[in-house]
Nucleic acid binder design. Structure first.
Length: 418
RNA sequence: CGGGGUGUAGCGCAGCUUGGUAGCGCGGCUGGUUUGGGACCAGUAGGUCGUAGGUUCGAAUCCUAUCAACCCGACCA
């Protein structure tokens, strides 16, 4: 990727309608642009980050044997009436009619659609368990969207669904997903915690939330010394008081703010019963399937990661989700043929080694380039000017540190990947 | 939905109190001088002041309505 041909949309001025740091930086660094309330276009850099997160999730879902599918976002009223949620879900469900005046909603979640799919496809209990997931756009008509993509109306979510013959199997798979979630958030290099949670209008018997810890989080968490936590919403019921300070001091719990980025549920037979998803066992006795569902707010993770990783100059991406592994900045390459050629050589060499690299060959000053990439948050810089080109070396710098090191040509790759 | 403030150039803002037909910074474009951490000089383009109506000789400015996005609250995987 060459910056001269790659549209960057960084801006110097603070956006006027952004309140929290992640929102401000996402606008300034040119990751997203607002289209209307709670709806954002992803610009090239923003989409690269989204795809990096998606791919980590995809790999870990595939690793546990969950298979990727894709379902339609516009869903017929009939399915939602079967589950009872056409009436229960409320105004957050965006409803619309087609040209034949048939009623639909824009999917905020997909229990109905996938339950319908499985009841049509499932022939035998021997096919169970079934584990499927998708990564797609969801729409929730929030009362008040806010904080940029943090609480958007349209957002990218990974939702997985599991189908089981019995509770024991559901319990086992619930733990498998839980473990996969721990792997995902560890790979994303985020400080996070899992808490017991309220299952809300998704329903079911048990649920756990995964929160990225951040002061700007909208959820109150109570965490014990082993890192095990509970959402304040259910702590209120458990301890029969609304006083969060009282609960935390009396029970030796630490109060922290969290951004909910994942939520897993044991649904039990809520949807299989209402939508009649059942199968005969080996003795020909019919059973409603046990279900689980497992969500991750993919786009929200971008904002959450920024809330945890930034400084006065901009974003600082964890290596795992940075839009690029490294930016190669040439100084006056447009005027100095040696610099340009040498930069291109280094660039080609690193591409061959499959690093995600962008060569900033724009006709701009060094300070401008550095400021752009510090704002965007790429974790590693290689700088090439006249002296580097002459001496067959490069200047290496990490995001967030003022220190600059000189690297010999042969050491570049090792340092970048260490 | 209740409360609050806000809509003026791509972005950030001033002008409004006290009506006289728009200005600043950033960004853009052209030329020149610069160039190892956001350069400087000169020139230049870009806005029927959210929209509609009203008052007035005259409205960005006053009045009414309306729309939009933002903040607080209720609500929310």
């Amino acid at each position: 990727m060459k910056a001269s041909k790659y549209p960057l949309f960084t801006q110097k001025n603070e956006p006027s309608d952004a309140e929290i740091i992640s929102h401000k930086l996402m606008i300034k660094a040119g990751l997203v642009r607002q289209q209307s309330s709670g709806q954002y276009s992803f610009l090239p850099i923003g989409l690269r980050i989204l795809k990096k997160i998606e791919n980590i999730i995809r790999q870990e879902m595939n690793a546990i044997g969950s298979a990727e599918i894709l379902m339609p976002s516009i869903q017929p009223r009939e399915l939602w009436q079967e589950s009872g949620r056409w009436d229960d879900y409320g105004p957050e469900l965006l409803r619309l009619n087609d040209r034949h005046d048939r009623e639909y909603c824009v999917g905020p979640t997909f229990e109905e659609v996938i339950t319908d799919l499985i009841r049509k496809e499932l022939n035998s209990y021997k096919q169970l368990p079934i584990n499927l997931y998708q990564i797609s756009s969801k729409f929730r008509d929030e009362i008040r969207p806010r904080f940029g993509i943090m609480r958007a109306r349209e957002f990218t979510m990974k939702d997985a669904y599991s189908f089981h013959m019995d509770n024991t199997c559901l319990d086992e798979w619930y733990e498998v997903y839980k473990e996969a979630y721990n792997k995902i958030f560890t790979r994303l290099q985020l400080e996070y915690t899992m808490v017991d949670a309220d299952s809300g209008n998704i329903g079911g018997s048990k649920s756990n939330e995964f929160h990225v810890i951040a002061d700007t989080g909208e959820d109150d968490l109570l965490i014990d010394k082993h890192g095990v936590g509970i959402n304040f919403e259910i702590a209120k019921e458990k301890y029969k008081t609304d006083d969060i300070e009282k609960i935390s001091s009396e029970n030796d719990l630490i109060h922290k703010k969290g951004i909910e980025v994942g939520h897993i549920f044991k649904l039990g037979d809520k949807y299989s019963k209402s939508m009649n998803l059942s199968i005969a066992d080996s003795e020909n006795n019919s059973h409603f399937l046990q279900m689980g569902c497992y969500g991750i707010g993919v786009s929200r993770i971008i904002a959450a990661a920024i809330e945890q990783n930034y400084d006065a100059n901009g974003i600082i991406w964890p290596k795992s989700i940075s839009p690029f592994d490294v930016v190669l900045i040439e100084i006056d390459g447009d005027k100095n043929k040696d610099v340009r050629e040498y930069s291109e050589n280094i660039y080609e060499m690193l591409i061959d080694k499959e690093l995600d690299i962008i060569l900033d060959d724009r006709n701009a000053k060094l300070g401008n380039k550095l400021n752009d990439w510090e704002l965007i948050g790429v974790p590693q810089f290689i700088i090439i000017g006249r002296s580097e080109a002459q001496n067959n070396e490069v200047t290496y710098k990490k995001r967030g540190s003022a220190e600059k090191d000189t690297l010999k040509h042969d050491d570049i790759y090792n340092v970048l990947t260490s």
